[in-house]
Amino acid sequence: MPLDTSTYNLALLRVDGRRWNELRRINAQIRTQAAADGSSYLEMGHTKVMCVVTGPSEPGPRRGGVVGSAGGAGGGGGQSKDAEVVVNIVIAGFSSVDRKRRGRGDKRTLEMQSTVANALAASLHIHLFPHSQINVSLHVLSQDGSLLAALINAATLACVDAGIPMTDYVAACTAGSTSTYAANDESADPLLDMNHQEEQELPGLTVATMGDSDRVVALVCESRVQISRLEGMLVVGVDGCKQVREILDRVVREKGRRMIDEGTVEKGTGLNDMDVD
């Protein structure tokens, strides 16, 4: 179904009623699953993702199962000084509107796996865990655009839950442009956080930054876009990442607060110590 982009100029509202700089509703939970070392659940609009982290643990054919085929070796050394980040993405057949089954060997899935692994490896202190493996398995339950961004955010939350030391949150977001490449419209506005309909029609990119700094750890652009528009999109994307980081941070703090309240965590630190950053 083609998206009618011409209406944007009338009211400056997008198809789902957002303005150009508005994120969709992000809802996240951590520690959703008791058996795993770390787990999270993240919704960005209608994109729903679950993440389970196992490790750092001893690598081997038993734990990972798919050392050869799972792609996504981050860091730069399996058996060497650094831990290996192995990402495994399962896109459920029921996740899109029309059922489409993607096998494990799907090229797009493999590329997303290596992107997520590299983005995480930039933030995780993998040098602290030599000869070990961090398994990140991501399940896509429902997709409506910004899939890669949602995967990166969910993986970050699960790594926080697993207690793996990391430099900062890796927050990701998408940005697009209001008119197509072919329109060659110089006055096109950038857009933040694209949904599936917009992704089909408009040029867009996914950007992930290290926390609220301007350090970009992943940048993926798979569509044709005029170079003059790229800067505006990137600025909007990085700004979106900062908003996402705030949301992720709030989720983690809230969970931590609740765990101290419930007495799950030792009361070594007071509730108010948490606010000191």
């Binding site: 699953q33 058996a35 795993a36 679950m50 029921f94 509107v97 429902s142």
Partner: peptide, 22 residues
């Protein structure tokens, strides 16, 4: 999962969890 005809999620007490979508 509102996008499916039917879906369910079960967690066992030992922490194993499954989701089925129809």
């Amino acid at each position: 999962l509102p996008g499916t005809n039917g879906s369910a999620r079960i967690c066992f007490a030992d922490g194993t969890e499954a989701i089925v979508g129809v």
